[in-house]
Amino acid sequence: MFKPSHKRPVIEWGFTRFNRMFLNIHFNRILLNAPESVPKENTMFLINHSAWWDPLFIFYLNDQVIHSDGYGMMHEDGLQKFPFFRSIGAFSINSSNRKHLMESLSYSADLLSKGKTVWIFPQGAEQPLEKRPLEFFSGISYIVQKAPHVNVVPVSIYYALEHERKPNAYITIGEPLPQEGYSELNRKSMTHYFETAATKQLNELRTRVVQEDHQLFHPI
Rank of each mutant, 00 (worst) to 15 (best):
M1H: 12
M1W: 08
M1P: 10
F2S: 09
F2N: 08
P4I: 15
S5I: 10
K7G: 10
R8P: 08
P9G: 15
V10L: 15
E12C: 10
T16S: 15
R17T: 14
F22E: 12
L23I: 06
N24R: 10
F27A: 08
I30P: 00
L32H: 01
N33G: 05
P39H: 05
P39K: 03
K40P: 00
T43Q: 04
M44Q: 06
I47W: 00
N48L: 07
N48C: 05
S50L: 12
W52F: 12
L56F: 11
I58G: 03
F59V: 15
L61Q: 04
L61T: 09
N62D: 11
N62V: 09
V65H: 02
I66H: 00
H67Y: 08
H67T: 12
S68K: 01
S68P: 00
D69G: 06
Y71Q: 08
G72P: 00
G72M: 13
M73D: 01
M74A: 08
G78D: 06
Q80V: 14
P83Q: 11
F84Y: 05
S87A: 12
S87V: 07
I88T: 03
G89A: 06
A90C: 05
F91R: 04
S92Q: 05
I93L: 07
S95Q: 10
S96T: 14
N97S: 11
N97Y: 03
N97D: 14
N97V: 15
R98A: 14
R98D: 11
K99G: 08
H100Q: 10
H100F: 06
M102P: 01
E103I: 06
S104D: 02
S104P: 01
S106G: 12
S106K: 09
S106W: 02
S108A: 09
L111F: 03
K114A: 07
K114I: 10
T117R: 00
T117W: 00
W119M: 08
Q123Y: 01
G124L: 07
E130M: 09
E130Q: 07
E130A: 13
R132G: 10
P133L: 05
E135M: 08
F137L: 13
F137S: 07
G139I: 08
I140R: 02
Y142L: 13
Y142Q: 09
Y142A: 08
Y142M: 11
I143S: 03
I143P: 00
I143K: 01
V144D: 03
V144N: 05
K146N: 11
K146G: 08
P148Q: 12
H149G: 13
N151I: 10
V152E: 04
S156L: 05
S156M: 04
R165V: 15
R165K: 12
P167F: 06
N168D: 15
N168Q: 11
I173F: 05
P176D: 14
P176E: 14
L177G: 02
Q179K: 04
Q179N: 11
E184C: 07
R187K: 10
S189Q: 14
S189T: 15
M190Y: 02
H192G: 13
F194W: 06
F194D: 07
E195T: 05
T199H: 04
T199E: 10
T199M: 09
K200H: 11
Q201M: 12
Q201A: 07
L202T: 09
E204D: 11
R206M: 14
T207L: 12
T207E: 15
R208T: 14
V209D: 03
E212P: 00
D213P: 00
H214E: 15
Q215L: 15
Q215A: 13
F217S: 03
F217C: 05
P219R: 13
I220D: 07
I220S: 03
